[in-house]
């Protein structure tokens, strides 16, 4: 378990560093990507492209592994259903993403850059998660 925790910490650090290097810790830049009719900033597409390469390789390696390197078993989502929850949830998330220019990863990474603003967003985001838990959670 402690190996898993160290590994998760390292993954979080690399992920946060990647967000900072790629400009994705900047809400104005993310909003620039979402602003198709304005001064569109395609940087986010390059970030996605970069991130998909190691992960596509990783999925290929995963199919050859009996179990993860530091954990007893893979625990991965196997749901395949496309339902109203998925669509409505993604739509609501997209609205919030457009409003503030922040999604969960950059919000946490942003705590290191602008603790007041990112902190305000993170507290509200956790409240939104709690609201879901109290209302529509299964």
């Amino acid at each position: 378990m402690s190996r898993q925790i160290l590994l998760a910490l390292l993954a979080g650090v690399l992920f946060g560093a990647g967000l900072a290097i790629s400009g994705m810790a900047d809400p104005a830049r993310v909003r620039g990507f979402l602003d198709l009719a304005g001064t569109w900033d395609p940087t986010l597409a390059f970030v996605m492209g970069g991130a998909l390469i190691p992960m596509a390789l990783a999925w290929g390696i995963r199919s050859k592994l009996e179990h993860p390197l530091a954990a007893p078993a893979f625990d991965l989502p196997e749901t395949r259903r496309i339902d109203a929850r998925l669509i409505a949830g993604a739509a609501v998330f997209g609205i919030g993403w457009g409003v503030a220019g922040l999604c969960p990863g950059p919000a946490f990474a942003g705590l290191a850059v602008n603790a007041a603003a990112a902190g305000t967003f993170v507290v509200a985001m956790l409240a939104g998660m709690a609201l879901h838990r109290l209302t529509l959670a299964r």
Binding site: Q4, L7, A8, L10, A11, G12, V13, L14, F15, A17, G18, L19, A20, I21, S22, G23, M24, R29, G32, T39, W40, D41, P42, T43, L44, A45, F46, V47, M48, G49, G50, A51, L52, I53, P54, M55, L57, A58, W59, I61, R62, L65, H67, P68, L69, A70, A71, A73, F74, D75, L76
Partner: peptide, 30 residues
């Protein structure tokens, strides 16, 4: 348009994000 874009830094940071996600998948199985 495009004048603020940083394709190289974006791609490099993206690679790091992908490596982090790969570490979680192959290391922790998540």
């Amino acid at each position: 348009a495009f004048s603020r874009a940083m394709p190289a830094a974006g791609f490099a940071g993206g690679l790091l994000i992908g490596i982090a996600a790969a570490l979680m998948l192959l290391g922790a199985g998540r």
